[in-house]
Design a protein around this nucleic acid. Structure first.
Lengths: 220, 220
DNA sequence: CGTCGCGTTGACAAGGTTCAAATTTGGTGG
DNA sequence: CCACCAAATTTGAACCTTGTCAACGCGACG
């Protein structure tokens, strides 16, 4: 499960520059829907924080199979690497605004502040925690459980909105959950038929969770 | 894919105490086969480095389904948490000797040395990298590809021995790869029939890789 | 010698994928 | 604003990989 980021009191959730005591230069940038922020293997020069929109980070197999590691929503940081290159690709799911700062300037600034080092570590650890939970999902959960978990994760990260607007399409969800888009669609339909959720408006990307408790039970 | 640790020149691979400049007190401890090093949810007081043996770290679902995040072999560090508690359970796969140091003493010492912070970060990042690769395996690879990847991972981490001795049983491998033990066993047999490997001695835990190249192709 | 843990193998079931087609949605240009 | 087309989503049916259940083999050990 991912950690909520909106309106969180923890320091690491704040403005990127705040991490290093407002000493870093941050520029802003806009990515159009579907464009690549950085590619796997590219040099890791910058660190990113999402202002608005959504980003998917993923790995590809040679034959095109794709595994999405995570979706990044407003407030989330991503792209920080320890080595020189990115280990995965990042793409904008929808039009996305990000704050950018040089990796070097961030790390250098960190090195002079004990507090910063701790926060930086906690940042990476958060990604690790998500990865561990996701391995459990991918390795051991059924399609039903995966989709229920996904809905609850998004619900939490979007702060339990009345109407949840998913930025990503079925294919993205499938590649995140280790399923096919057909299975995801069918499971959504099954949940709708069981009155666990309902679609809102004309788009299938807007939905209302009608029974979070039951969904949580389904997740196991 | 995990990073080899034996005889590596990188500073982070060395003795645990070296990380903080030999200033920490390290004690040693032995765990018998199958015993718990620490449990999920327990307070994270210590950091561990394996001297000999092997440790599995895993998460459980309420109904008993298990996902092994990783196997730790000699030289590997594990158990470092950012929060106060462990996010998973660690158990000795075989009789295992570990070096132990207090988490606090490690982190405190780190805080005074810029170098240490960087190495610590790289340590966590290494786990993250493994997790990312494992998500790709769990989410998108076939049973054949998973087992091939497992064999190659173990081969590399054990430094390409002529005869590979697996410390873990089939059930552990299955829970690591998101398969059942029967599927693992069948795939091993299939590889043996195709002369990609052969079993050694009476135990099925000792084997020889006969065609690493072909295995790498199977992994995709 | 019997039991127990571990591994292998077979037969069958099932969850999920694949392939195909229908339906809906969103964007674009007239 | 509406028509039209491409993309996204849903739905159906057949198929297949993997899981499930069960039997068996083998060595270790009391």
């Amino acid at each position: 499960m991912l950690v909520r980021t909106k309106a969180s009191p923890r320091p690491v959730d704040g403005h990127l520059a705040a991490l290093a005591g407002e000493q870093i230069f941050c520029s802003e940038f806009k990515y159009r829907k579907g464009t690549v922020v950085f590619g796997e293997g590219e040099e890791a020069e910058y660190v990113y924080q999402i202002i608005s929109g959504a980003v998917r980070t993923y790995k590809l197999l040679p034959d095109g199979r794709r595994q999405i590691n995570s979706f990044h929503l407003p407030g989330d940081l991503f792209g920080l690497e320890n080595g020189a290159t990115h280990r995965f690709t990042a793409e904008a799911v929808v039009e996305t605004n990000v704050r950018i700062t040089g990796r070097r300037s961030l790390l250098d600034t960190m090195a002079h502040r004990e507090l910063g080092a701790k926060e930086l570590l906690s940042l990476v650890t958060r990604n690790l925690k998500h990865a561990e939970n996701h391995m459990l999902l991918l390795g051991r959960k059924t399609a039903l459980e995966r989709v229920a978990a996904f809905l609850l994760e998004m619900d939490e990260r979007l702060d339990h909105p009345d109407v949840m607007t998913l930025p990503m399409k079925r294919r993205d969800i499938a590649d995140y959950l280790g399923l096919t888009l057909e299975t995801v669609s069918r499971t959504f339909s099954a949940f709708r038929d069981e009155k666990l959720l309902q679609f809102c408006g004309v788009s299938q990307r807007q939905l209302v969770l009608l029974n979070r408790i039951r969904l949580a039970q389904l997740d196991t």
